[in-house]
Structure formats: C-alpha cells, structure tokens
Design a protein around this nucleic acid. Structure first.
Lengths: 237, 237
DNA sequence: TCAACATGATAGTAAACCTATTATAAATGT
DNA sequence: ACATTTATAATAGGTTTACTATCATGTTGA
C-alpha cells in the first residue's frame, strides 16, 4: 500500500501556458476551479458551459473568460493539476526506494490507486480529479488544435509523468526499444481498464468487484514485466 | 504485404441501432455520409455542424436530422462503418491462413495499414476513415451517455473487431489471463502510436519518416509476442 | 389513381460561445 | 487627502449551434 501523504499545504504549480490569469492566486479563481472540477466531472466537458459555472460560483461568464480562454483550456488546467500532483506524489514516494524494479512497481501502484490513500490537503480533490481523468483525459490531445497547443508547455505536466516512467523503464532495461511508447501505454491502460470494466465490460478482463483495482495493478505489472524483461534469449540458452 | 482487396460492390451493413433512417438506402443519404466524412475529418467533430453539412450537400438541417439523431450518432455511424469494413477485410484475408500466429500477425498488419492497399470499391474512402478514426474514435466511448448508448448494438462493430482478436489470442495462448484487455490495447495502440508520432513525438518511439508504419507494426508485434508468449517458466527450466 | 412518405423551404426557440462596454473597487502618485 | 490610474466584475448584446415544427411539393408503389 502506498503511504498516506500527509504533507500539509503543498501548492501545485500549473504551467503558466495553461491559463490567462492564475486562478490559484485569487479567491474567485480557486472557487472557480473547485466548482469547475465538480461540474465537468458530473456532466462531462460537452455539457459543461461557462454559464453554468458562473451560476455555480455566483459570478459571471466574463469573469471566467479572464482566467481561461475557453472551457477546453480550463479542462486542460484541471488535468494538468492532476498530472502535476500525481507526479509530485510519485517522486515523493519513489525517491527513497533503492531498486529500480521497486520504483517501477510503486509507480504503477500509484497510477492505479491515484484517487485513494491521498490526504486531501489541497483544495482540489484527487478522487474527483482521477474520476475526471478517466473520461476526459484523452480529449485534450485528440483535437484539431493539438499542434498549436502543443507548444511544449500546454501538455507539460502529462509529459513529465510519461518521461519519469520512461526513464525508469530505460534504467530497468537499457536495451528496451520502446520505452516511451510503453510508458504512455501503461499510463493510459491504468485509466482505460478502469473505465472499460465499469462501462464496457465486454472489452476488458477486469472484474467490477472488490478486486478491481488489484486486478488492474496485476495487469499493469504483467504488461510491464513482459514488455521490459531483459534479454530473454540469453536466459533461454 | 496484405493482398489488395479487389472484390467489387461489397455493401457494408451498419447496425440499425446506429441511425434513424438508413443513409445507405438513398441518394441523399449516401451523399450525406460522404460529405460528413470529409467535413468531420477536416475540422473535427467539435467544429462540425449539421448546418455546414446541409450546405455541403445542398440540402437542409431538417433532412439530416431525419437520418441521425445528432452529430455524435453520425460520427458513430462512420466509425462503425470503418470497424465493420476492417472486420470484413481481416476475416477475408485471414481466413485462408492455417497457423494462428500467422493470423495474428496479419491481423496486426491490417490494423497498421488499414488505410492502404485498399481498393476503393466502396463510396466511403478507407484512407479518410482511418485518418478520422485516429482522432475521433475514442470520443464515442468517453461520454457520459456511454451506458445509455451501450445497448450492445451501438458499439457492436468495434466490439466485433476486438472479439476477433481476443479469440485469436486465446487460441494462441489458452492460458493468457488478459486476452480481451490485450486485444483492445493492441487495436488502440495501432492508432495512438500513429497519432503520437505525428503530433506528440516526445511520447512515442516511432519515427515520422518512411519507416513509420513498419515501426508501428514491429511495436505491435513486440507487444503481442511479449504479452502472449506461452509459459515462459517451462522453457526457462 | 390515391395514399403514404421523403424532401425542401421556412421559421422559430433556447442555449452556447464569445466580445464590447460600462460600473466599481483597489492601488498609486503628488 | 484627493485625483488618477489600474484591475476586476457586472451588464448587455451578437453570433452560432442544436434542435423542433409546419407545410408545400414531389415521388413511389399498392
């Protein structure tokens, strides 16, 4: 089990390329983020509008537009916050471990249990953020504005999580041919298997019961080990 | 290389749960599908509207609404068409092969080259459909209406492709613990690696040059073999 | 030939998305 | 202390989207 995080008052900094005005800096901004998270998670980004959010925080559309260009940028902010927060937690919990394989295993465990064992020190709840990420995370990439938005800052926090995992995989097996692709695949599968087992069970072997998370963790471990195992040929000789 | 499909006049049937009125049955309907495909592929589903489509086919919004409830259903229709078409092609090309491993390899090859080596017998171009699927395929699942829409018919064609691959994996290794999850993962990776290598290259090991497709194919083969290899423990003894 | 039905034209509503302008409060300079 | 600048919020409005309704026209096929 991952240790419970108890560090108080960590401020997660989201890259300035993700907003017009820093929402964490003002009272309205913080309230905006909190309510946006709840609303988007409840209805999905498609149904979500600035008008509804304005009503929820007892403010106006114009105010929200001063913080974010549009709702997709706001979604990206929340997801960036999620990845940044996860990245911090991973670094924190993995740092002290000595063996690379231990680090890798804990990395995957944190991905699967990202919403649990988390002291809600911060004003954005990781449980809700994780649930939001399940359905909305991919939507920020798969847009026709990817190339404009991908100025290496807009998606920075997600990329950092990927590159952390990539580098561990490379350490674990320096001759691995696909460290980046495998890293992203693992991160993506940690979400998708949870979503599929809940909503499209015919597309996943993961059950919906109590063992759900443990099964996903086993699956990720299996994927990791089978794809990053060192030179099988040698051993087989 | 997969054989070039030359069978003329194949009619791909899309499940009736995907439309209000069969668009393939009428002239307007077919024109609607063709133009919708081009428009959605060009601008993305977010920018796409029935008004624009109506203008493109020189008709009215009201007419289009008689075929599809909304633009998401239309997108799902096109993607269902894509999966159905792919499914047919896979069955056709794999049928004659004897060894399961051969079937698997060809399955993956067809996934990677889905837009190529395809005689455009049909009125919907597989090249454009494949490109559309790269960015839009996941969007039909990750919605808050999944559970309503997932009446086992709406996503039928995608599920069929998955289950075909699942059953091959099971034949190849009956003791495989995650056949469904691995099948979906492979299908998904065949798209994602292409998209990432084009738009977010820092998240993929696949290059953008001439070898792009071959690299993705190698990657998929690698994933398949490493995750479905039979009882390593026995061999290692 | 008549009934049934698909289409096209027209219109209209409600909401979403975004901008421009005006009001208000806080900060700053003399 | 008071005027001037600055930052932010409130108000309002325009455009587009998503969808529904109605009705005349044309086509099909029983």
């Amino acid at each position: 089990m991952p240790t419970l995080l108890t560090i108080p008052q960590i401020r997660i900094e989201v890259d300035s390329g993700c907003y017009l005005r820093d929402p964490q800096a003002t009272e309205v901004g913080r309230k905006l983020l909190q309510q946006a998270l709840l609303l988007i998670d409840k209805t999905g980004i498609e149904e979500f509008t600035f008008a509804k959010l304005a009503k929820a925080i007892d403010s106006t559309e114009a105010t929200i537009y001063r913080y974010f260009e549009n709702k997709h940028c706001l979604l990206n902010y929340l997801l960036s916050w999620y990845w940044a927060s996860l990245n911090f937690r991973i670094a924190f919990e993995i740092n002290s471990l000595s063996r690379v394989s231990e680090k890798l295993e804990n990395f995957l465990r944190i991905l699967v249990y990202a919403d649990l064992n988390y002291a809600s020190t911060s004003f954005l709840d990781m449980g809700v953020l994780h649930h939001l990420a399940l359905t909305e995370a991919d939507k920020v990439f798969f847009t026709h504005r990817v190339d404009e938005e991908n100025q290496d800052r807009y998606f920075r926090h997600y990329k950092m999580v990927c590159s952390q995992l990539t580098s561990l995989i490379e350490q674990h097996n320096p001759s691995c041919q696909w460290p980046k692709s495998i890293a992203c695949m693992l991160i993506e599968q940690s979400h998708r298997q949870l979503f599929f087992s809940d909503h499209l069970p015919s597309l996943s072997d993961v059950s919906q019961g109590k063992k759900q998370r443990e099964e996903i963790y086993s699956y990720l471990l299996f994927l990791l080990h089978s794809t990053t195992e060192k030179s099988k040929t040698k051993r087989q000789r």
